[in-house]
Every structure is written in C-alpha cells, then in structure tokens.
Amino acid sequence: MKTVLTNKNISIRTRRRALECYIEPILMYRCEAWTISKQTQKKLEATEMWFLRRMLRISWTAKKTNDTVLEEAHTTRLLISKIRKRQATFFGHVMRREKLENLVTTGMLEGKRSRGKQREKLIEGLADWLKAGKSLEAIEATKDRKKWRTMIANAVKQGT
C-alpha cells in the first residue's frame, strides 16, 4: 500500500480513503475490547499522525507541527473517536443481552481481586468518554437504545 498512499498523482482525498479502507481496519482489529489508557491513546494518535506524514511525504526531521500536517491532509484526528464509537455500540449490545458477556464486561464476577493497582475497566473509560458520570449511569442508559445512541452521537460530535 505504500506506493498507493505516497503517490503524488493520486489526490489526497483518495489516498485518505484508501488509508481508511485498508489500513485502519487492520489497526482497529478487536478494538471493542480494548481499555484505552492515556498512554495507549498517545500511541494511537502518534500512529495516526505517522500515517499522515508518510502519506504526505513529510520527513520526521521537518519542523512541521501536527496541526499543519492535519491541515495539509484536510482532515482531523478521527481514530480515537472511531474506536470509542465502536466500543460504545458493542458495549450497548452486550449490556442488552444480559448473559455471561454482560457479567464479564461489567466485572461483576465472584472471587478475589488481584493485588496492586487494579486495571481500568472498559465501562469506566466509556463512562468518562460519554460524560455519563458513574459507570452505573452508562449501564442504565444502554437499556434504552435511543438514549444510548444519542449519548454516543453527542460524544462523537464533541470529538473527545
């Protein structure tokens, strides 16, 4: 794909579409189950910018900010919001099923917790992204599909 993505004879819009169609699905494989920490988010944003810089043939030694690269590509950062949207739709689906997946996702299984700092749960990250307050509010919102879809659409519009 390098020859297609770096070809100056192909418009930037077409190259971006090729990136979205062929590269991003590979990058986002199984992203519905990820817990995105600040460190992971930084790595994903850096990867997105790396692809754009390669596409525009901008050297890493060139003193161009990410904002100017985004302007040249006529785009904004979309990868994190796409991942979060996929996570939210998958989470709503799992919560409405009320089966074993529901228990695993919410972390309401019996047993001892491991020592040390506990890992962030998927629901905590989603509740923070959706600005739902507590994770229980987000779980309750999944029961009403219209409300859940509205919450997701509002979060995507805000671009967080």
Rank of each mutant, 00 (worst) to 15 (best):
M1H: 10
T3V: 10
T3E: 09
L5Y: 09
T6A: 10
K8C: 09
I10G: 02
I12A: 06
R13G: 09
T14P: 03
E20G: 09
I26F: 13
E32S: 06
S37P: 01
S37C: 05
Q39G: 05
K42E: 10
K42V: 04
E45P: 00
A46R: 10
R53D: 09
R57P: 04
I58V: 15
S59P: 06
K63D: 14
K64E: 14
E72F: 11
A73G: 07
T75K: 02
R77K: 14
L78V: 12
S81D: 11
K85W: 03
T89M: 07
F91H: 00
G92N: 05
V94F: 01
R96S: 12
N102M: 04
V104W: 15
T105Q: 06
G107C: 08
G107H: 05
G111F: 08
R113D: 07
R113H: 05
S114C: 06
K117W: 09
K117C: 10
I123C: 11
L126F: 00
L126Y: 00
G133T: 00
K134E: 13
S135Q: 05
E137L: 02
A138R: 03
K143Q: 14
R145I: 15
K146D: 15
M151F: 00
I152H: 00
N154L: 08
K157N: 04
Q158T: 05
T160P: 00
T160K: 13
T160C: 02
T160E: 09
